[in-house]
């Protein structure tokens, strides 16, 4: 999967939230987005997720224009803002509901995923009884459900304890190994550097820097 942002600008109610963004993402790579609040990280993820449309420029995925040739990226896992599940259902039921829309996910996969994010013992607990950290873990499980080719994680370390952050680091590594294109937007500079192959820095909706931490194949530049 090859994703290209070509001079993408987004204006919302007269305010430019992203301006002239040009970047490319590849499979098997983890791309970090760094920037302060309001710098445009989440907007960039929303654009890539197909939730909002560019005001100018275009986003292409394997040569096809997003929002024109396709409504959403064909295989995408998404954790954006806070994880939003249904309080009246258990963690497992929530994931099963989501899995019912994927053709390649079996019921057993849901249990495996719960184990993977450290929620094996709490799979049958109602979501409303989950702590913030547990909710975030379930959000991560929901995002990687169905082995997506594109994985978008917005502030994935939110509410996670040290063990949770370590687990997340492992999961991102596994997703990279599997060949997914992973995009992580995060405040935590140390975490971002530890998981990313490259980092784009955003300021006032513009890309200000592009750091390559690992070349393709894993070697340091």
């Amino acid at each position: 999967m090859s994703i290209i942002f070509e001079n993408v600008t987004k204006t919302i109610r007269g305010k430019t939230v992203l301006q002239g963004v040009t970047l490319s993402l590849e499979t098997g790579r983890v791309t970090g987005l760094r920037g302060i609040n309001g710098s445009g990280k989440t907007m960039l993820l929303r654009l890539l997720a197909g939730l909002i449309h560019p005001s100018e420029g275009k986003i292409t995925i394997d040569g096809k224009t997003l929002g024109k040739d396709m409504e959403f990226p064909p295989s995408m896992g998404l954790l954006i803002e806070n994880p939003a599940f249904l309080g009246q259902y258990t963690g497992a039921e929530n994931l099963e509901m989501l899995a019912s829309l994927h053709q390649n996910v079996a019921k057993e996969d849901v249990r495996t995923l719960l184990e993977k994010v450290g929620l094996a013992a709490d799979g049958d607990t109602k979501y409303r009884k989950y702590s913030l950290g547990m909710k975030q873990r379930l959000g991560i499980a929901g995002a990687i459900l169905g082995k997506p080719e594109l994985l978008l994680l917005d502030e994935p370390t939110n509410a996670l304890d040290t063990k949770g952050v370590e687990l997340l680091r492992e999961i991102i590594g596994e997703e990279r190994q599997r060949g997914a294109a992973v995009v992580v937007a995060c405040h935590d500079a140390a975490f971002l550097e530890s998981v990313s192959d490259e980092i784009y820095c955003l300021e006032n909706g513009q890309l200000t820097d592009h750091l390559i931490l690992r070349e393709k194949g894993g070697s340091k530049p």
Partner: peptide
Amino acid sequence: GFGKTLLTACQ
């Protein structure tokens, strides 16, 4: 909320 996740999943 959850519908956003389902929306992207149902494409």
